[in-house]
Design a protein around this nucleic acid. Structure first.
Lengths: 343, 343
DNA sequence: AGTCACAATGTAAACGTTTACATTGTGTTT
DNA sequence: AAACACAATGTAAACGTTTACATTGTGACT
């Protein structure tokens, strides 16, 4: 009779116990009804569902996780650098986790928290069931840390692509290969230069390899002086351009290992009054935000970075759902050549 | 005697119960020792700590949250657009939450998850104690949703700055005011134009207001035709520039309400062979990544966007720790004029 | 010596859910 | 009609921690 009054007074969030009382069944039945257990008649299920709806019931996930000993959350560890693409990765990860009823917990590494820290807490507190780690480089130290993790880990990034881990990466090799073939086959260039990324960077290594292989395959000889070292910064692109354009035999096109260095090339070209694409063509890699807007807009290799996040999350959740030790995966997300006006 | 054997066999993560057994004390004492409760002698505390260290014990946070009924996590809800600054906000939030022993859970809004959805789950499942919401605009709908939230919410973004919510925002007004005064006082310009943001955008409104007030205060008359409407896109900056430069009396300087529109101005200036800063000066707002690299580099208003995240997290955690209903805060993060070469 | 105050520790309940096991009831098989 | 199978539901334990309350022990005061 005075139930409604009780409801008004007691505004605490409803539990299955309350539902059970209202429905005149045990909490076990309520739990089963809510979890679509077959061992409950359609009649009681309906009753329970109706009441739980009326009460606007939501299961206490903390309690559920506690008893089930699996937290329906995954950890996403970001490195301590900033990057335009992180948001997209987060978005991709979150979309998949959400679809699967999981939650995403982020942890940035920063001056107060080391990577080891993040992994350790995530791995042992029960807060998350698995971890996605955006890594800048695979070091021995990192390897040690990962070996001690008690929960599945999926890595995003190149690293040396060892078979000991689940890794999702962009297809650096194919992207570079395609871009180079585009310059050779579509644009008929024979003299193509490459500004590389940092020597120790595996993304950079693969892009260089893709470039070289595409040249070889298509019978384009690679002038040694046409490969100059960069380090992914605007500045190194600037100087790379100058170095290349100062050669007695100038290249017809430059493939920069990333867009930032391509932007550096724009600056240098501008400074020396070299016209892009009339005097020299330019291709980048990454399709950063600016590439579309710079003048002339930059032909580059786009990475569907959100897909990287999605793939990593999908892989991790697979691991969590079937804890069998299937050998590790290496997923390469395909790239796409975005043709604009710099060639 | 054979403890070590037992340890080897039983590799499950240690609990206080195991520590208690080893230390020959009750679990209550262990709990107290670990939580720095004064009611435990230094001797036992040391013993417990040593053992828990030996066992590499980490408290099961799910269990702790469960019993304490406060999840030491906060939710961070991102809108469905992408933005260069999100990563910094996440980083700022995470740094503060980490320092305070909290965790950060992200949820992007996207096609599968509405904002209402995110708030509802976060607010009722016990997963998080509070929410930080990055909002693009304050709508009636949003207001309704927020009213129903049962946990503290801190908003990031301008919106109309109503007193019903805790809001952290950048100081649009002061930033625009300072930039304009810089043009007037330091650069001695008398003819200054402004390209505005979208009419319905409150950030844009405040920037315009700051511009106008700075002009008024310093006796600079505002030619009506010097204020042209933009919408924060490169394109609208491009056209804004053309419109302004087509005037019989050209402005000496343009204050664009954001950097993207300033970039549009660069393009237009380039196209019409107008030299920046010789022929016309330019100031932007935001200090996006590119502004430093464009040529000439752009003088602009920098927002310490990480501070926004930090302030929001700090405010939220304050709310969580002292649940008194102190009236709401409006925190404005100061901006900084970055003087480069476009003036 | 008896009482008291208080410090250190122990006991056990509580949190909300899931789930193994127990119980009841119903219809079917012999 | 007795035995059985099985479906529906109930009972209670379990998860790991915190914490109110109970107990014990110790030294200081009367």
């Amino acid at each position: 009779m005075f139930c409604f009054l009780f409801d008004l007074i007691n505004n605490m969030t409803p539990t299955i116990k309350q539902i059970a009382k209202k429905a005149n069944v045990s909490i076990a039945t309520v739990s089963r009804a809510l979890n679509n257990d077959v061992r409950v008649t359609e009649l009681t299920r309906e009753k329970v569902l109706r009441i739980s709806n009326d009460l606007n019931y939501r299961p206490n996930l903390v309690a559920r996780n506690f008893v089930k000993k699996t937290s329906y959350a995954i950890g996403l560890i970001l490195p301590d650098i900033s990057d335009e693409f992180f948001t997209d990765i987060i978005r991709g990860v979150d979309e998949i986790t959400y679809k699967n009823g999981y939650y995403t917990m982020v942890a940035s590494s920063h001056k107060h928290r080391t990577l080891a820290d993040s992994i350790a807490t995530f791995s042992q507190t029960g807060l998350v069931g698995g971890v996605i780690l955006l890594m800048s480089a695979m070091t021995d130290n990192l390897k040690n840390i990962l070996d001690q993790a008690k929960i599945p880990v999926v890595l995003i990034g190149a690293g040396k692509q060892e078979r000991d881990f689940d890794i999702v990466t962009i297809d650096n090799y194919q992207g570079a290969f395609n871009a180079t073939e585009y310059l050779i086959k579509k644009k008929k260039f024979k003299k193509i230069a490459h500004i590389t990324g940092p020597a120790e960077n595996y993304d950079a290594y693969l892009r260089k390899k893709g470039f070289i292989d595409a040249c070889k395959k298509n019978g384009v000889s690679i002038n040694k002086s046409f490969i100059v070292d960069g380090n992914f910064t605007i500045d190194s692109g600037y100087h790379g351009f100058i170095q290349l354009y100062g050669l007695p035999e100038k290249p017809e096109a430059i493939f920069a290992a990333n867009d930032m260095m391509a932007l550096g090339c724009y600056d240098a070209a501008n400074y020396f009054n070299v016209k892009i694409p009339d005097d020299i063509s330019l291709v980048g890699f990454d399709d950063i935000f600016m590439s579309k807007y710079i003048n002339p807009s930059l032909t580059t290799v786009r990475v569907q970075i959100e897909e990287v996040g999605k793939a990593a999350a999908t892989l991790l959740i697979e691991r969590l759902n079937s804890s069998n030790g299937k050998h590790h995966s290496l997923i390469k997300i395909p790239t796409e050549l975005i043709i604009r006006n710099s060639c």
